[in-house]
């Protein structure tokens, strides 16, 4: 067994991430701890290790949302409705080092802003050819890619008239449970971004920029689909050189 406890990760900056209590996003009010977190001064293999998903068996279309939920009914089977997009990027750590073979998972609403979920009862219809879930492993250089349709914005009960900007939920594991991160990718230029109470849980406008996918015309395909680049930066692994405290 390789030991995982001779490494360290850059401390997570909790002022950069959204605070637990962010009353503009009302659901945080009763779901945020009020006591201080206990800082783990000497993280062990229980924090520094994490699962490696290289052997997880995936289907051929797990990262292709245009194809991975086609209707069974032949007559209806086709492509989902909406703007065809490639969402791609690189998983790197805070030192710019690529993170290969790590699990990237994503989920989203359809082009009308409706989720395929028992609990979503929004007026916009389900799309018989769209599920809204994808996953893949980053390649040897940390690149990941999905093909999907651009999700629609949708209203939600927070303020009287709150709308979520178009977004894709993105989950990444990285080399350790310490690097685990779930975020949302927004689309560059969306006027709903600065109006969103969930975006506003972040205090630093620069932090919002880290969640913005950028239109990348070079990677788009003519007569086919646009491309958005979204790099995922996870906690950096620090080399430890001085083991002995004496």
């Amino acid at each position: 067994m390789p030991r995982n406890d001779n490494k360290r990760f850059v401390e997570r900056d909790r002022n950069w991430h959204p605070p637990a209590y962010a009353p503009g996003y009302k659901t945080t009010v009763a779901r945020s701890p009020s006591q201080a977190y206990v800082s783990m001064q000497a993280p062990s293999v229980s924090e520094l290790g994490g699962p490696d998903f290289t052997r997880l068996r995936m289907g051929p279309h797990d990262n292709d949302l245009l194809l991975n939920f086609r209707a069974d009914n032949e007559a209806q089977s086709g492509l989902p409705i909406g703007e065809r997009v490639i969402v791609f990027g690189r998983v790197i750590d805070q030192f710019g080092k690529p993170v290969p073979n790590t699990l990237v998972e994503m989920w989203q609403a359809n082009a009308g802003g409706r989720y395929r979920h028992k609990k979503d009862g929004y007026l916009a219809p389900l799309d018989p050819n769209f599920g809204g879930v994808g996953r893949c492993l980053s390649d040897d250089e940390g690149w990941y890619r999905f093909r999907t349709v651009k999700p629609g914005p949708y209203p939600w009960p927070n303020d009287i008239n709150s709308w979520r900007p178009a977004h894709i939920h993105v989950s990444v594991m990285g080399p350790s449970i310490s690097t685990r991160l779930i975020t949302q990718m927004y689309f560059e230029g969306d006027p709903l971004i600065p109006l969103c109470p969930i975006v506003h849980t972040l205090r630093d406008p620069e932090a919002v920029e880290t969640m913005t996918g950028r239109l990348d015309m070079a990677r788009s395909r003519s007569m086919d689909c646009l491309a958005y680049r979204f790099d995922l930066v996870i906690r950096g692994e620090v080399q430890t050189y001085f083991e002995n405290q004496g």
Binding site: W16, H17, H117, L181, Q184, L202, E206, T210
Partner: peptide, 18 residues
């Protein structure tokens, strides 16, 4: 050093993905 991508809530529909 780079800044970490900021976290956002997994939301009410996290099950679709995970």
């Amino acid at each position: 050093m780079l800044r970490e991508t900021a976290s956002q809530t997994a939301g009410p529909y996290v099950h679709i993905g995970l």
